[in-house]
């Protein structure tokens, strides 16, 4: 079953310069997809469009076989959740529990059910001890963990991470990435769309979508993108260290064709001596 299908989507803020130019894509249920590209390539706009946060005039978006329009808007929003970049600007409740509950209040969930859900999801993201804490007493990583709880508590089919780790320190970042991985194992049907500049994260996803100036340039397995020197140079992309190292070693005359990890490459070097 398709999770998200987009056909020929065009969008512009001012009606003149399009941010997205005829974007089409199709994602399977349970895929972990990374969208990469420079700032201004239209990645975040695409995410907002899927959530129906921006009105578009041309193209179609289909989520869970349901077309995005005024009538289906709330139904679709209940199935798609997003975690934004800035931990502060998405913390709506006064405390951790209020913030998680905000998502549920919007679904008009009975209070008793809410109380247990809030506890359940706070403990899933390791924030059970912080239920009554206000955001000013939390670190960026903790706030983003709460944001993930507020997203997942609505039981979405699709989770969008819009540069969710880019404002965090290395501890916070790895906290969030491992949390997302754990959630994915718990719920394999969850489709994850990660908009990211973190090339190592993209390298580990199922599929990579490269965007440039409002268009999708390439959709493929990560390894195929990073093998493609020409594209890497053309779009001035950063490559994962292992890919970069392979290239350098190849230039030095090593045979690296079937070596894909640092361990394999290392072994090759010290054995060749």
């Amino acid at each position: 079953m398709k999770s998200v299908e987009i056909k020929d989507l065009t969008y512009s803020y001012n009606g003149v310069d399009p941010i997205l130019k005829g974007v089409s894509l199709s994602l399977d249920k349970g895929e972990y997809v990374s969208i990469v590209g420079h700032n201004g390539s239209g990645k975040s706009t695409l995410a907002k469009l899927i959530l129906g946060l921006l009105p578009f005039s041309k193209g179609t978006i289909i989520v869970n076989d349901l077309e995005l329009n005024k009538k289906n808007l709330q139904t679709i929003r209940n199935k798609v959740a997003i975690v934004f970049q800035n931990p502060d600007n998405q913390f709506i409740g006064a405390t951790v529990e209020d913030d998680i509950a905000f998502s549920l209040e919007n679904m008009n969930m009975p209070r008793e059910e809410m109380i247990s859900k809030v506890k359940e999801y706070a403990s899933k993201v390791g924030m059970l001890d912080y239920l009554t804490k206000e955001p000013s007493y939390l670190s960026g990583g903790q706030k983003q963990r709460v944001a993930i709880a507020t997203a997942l508590v609505r039981n979405p089919d699709i989770l969008i991470l819009d540069e969710s780790t880019s404002m965090l320190d290395p501890n916070g970042k790895s906290e969030i990435l491992s949390l997302v991985r754990r959630m994915k194992i718990e719920n394999p049907n969850l489709t994850i769309i990660s908009i990211t500049h973190d090339i190592e994260e993209a390298y580990n996803s199922d599929k990579i979508i490269l965007m440039h100036k409002g268009e999708i340039v390439l959709t493929c397995k990560p390894i195929e993108l990073f093998k493609n020197r020409e594209l890497i140079n053309k779009y001035n992309l950063k490559v994962p260290f292992v890919v970069e190292l392979k290239k350098k070693l190849q230039e030095l005359g090593y045979n690296v064709t079937d070596k894909n990890t640092l361990e394999e490459l290392g072994e090759m070097i010290w054995q060749s001596k």
């Binding site: 290395p170 260290f241 190292l245 490459l265 290392g266 010290w270």
Partner: peptide, 14 residues
């Protein structure tokens, strides 16, 4: 809160 860069750990490994 420090991630050792992959390059450095690789060099160390060698």
């Amino acid at each position: 809160s420090i991630d050792i860069p992959a390059l450095f750990s690789f060099a160390l490994l060698l």
